[in-house]
Amino acid sequence: MIEIKNLSFQIKSKKILNNINLKIKKSDFWLIFGPNGAGKTTLFKILTGLIGNYKGEIHIDTENIKKKSRKEMAKKISYLPQFDEFSLPLSVKEILLAGRYPYTSFFKDYSTKDYAILNEAVEQFGLGDFLNRDINTLSGGERKKVLLASAFIQDVSIILLDEPFTFLDPQAVSNLKKNLVTLNKGGKTIIIISHHIETLFSMVNKTAALKSGHIIYSGDKVFDRDILAKTYGIKFNHLVLENREIIFIDE
């Protein structure tokens, strides 16, 4: 459903992404990994439409994303950046409701249906106690949960997450993982970019390795020492423990 063809992007003479080709199918769960500066966040910003002056083509559901309006895009794809930029007081309810914004228009405010969808999601994500809280007063894990719920309310088929587990405590990591797996089982395509492959490898079914703007590998998840070594410049190893594959740095 997402098809990236010959995607290149550069800032002045610096190449950030170099001839990227990638096919992502419905209900896939992808991990795109690679060191800092590999071009992961740029790829997400291009997919969301935040960056437009790239070369190549990107199709979502066979339509070129350049031909879609912002609202049409927001019905397909939602992006959770690594850092949120909240500063003014905003209630959790307002953040969640913003997920229904693509379905409104200048004269059509949020409808009763939008509120019904909101209430459903509040129940599913267990956010009842948070609704009237100011988003700035929540912990990192709680904020991620609210933003994920907002993307769910947005009723998109694709959710992009940029380093979602940074700064989260183990309990929050575990909760967020559960939420993501549930969403994926519900049919959502989820793409995570991260350099924490140790945490994420077990939960995804597809991986891509990105280094200096090049795709080194993309496809079904397999543990491959060479790819990992080539991507990060260090040795990785894995072991299987009670049917779970664990990846670790082997140096």
């Binding site: 969301t48 439409g49 935040l50 912002r70 609202k71 049409e72 895009m73 927001a74 019905k75 939602s78 992006y79 959770l80 950046p81 949120d84 930029e85 909240f86 003014l88 905003l90 307002e94 953040i95 913003a98 997920g99 914004y101 693509p102 409104t104 200048f106 004269f107 405010d109 949020y110 907002s150 993307a151 947005q154």
Partner: peptide
């Protein structure tokens, strides 16, 4: 009429873009 937009704008550029 633009109250929803003004609210979303106050949550930052990436959030606004992501919400359409």
């Amino acid at each position: 009429f633009l109250k929803n937009e003004l609210l979303i704008a106050s949550a930052g550029e990436e959030f606004a873009y992501s919400k359409g």
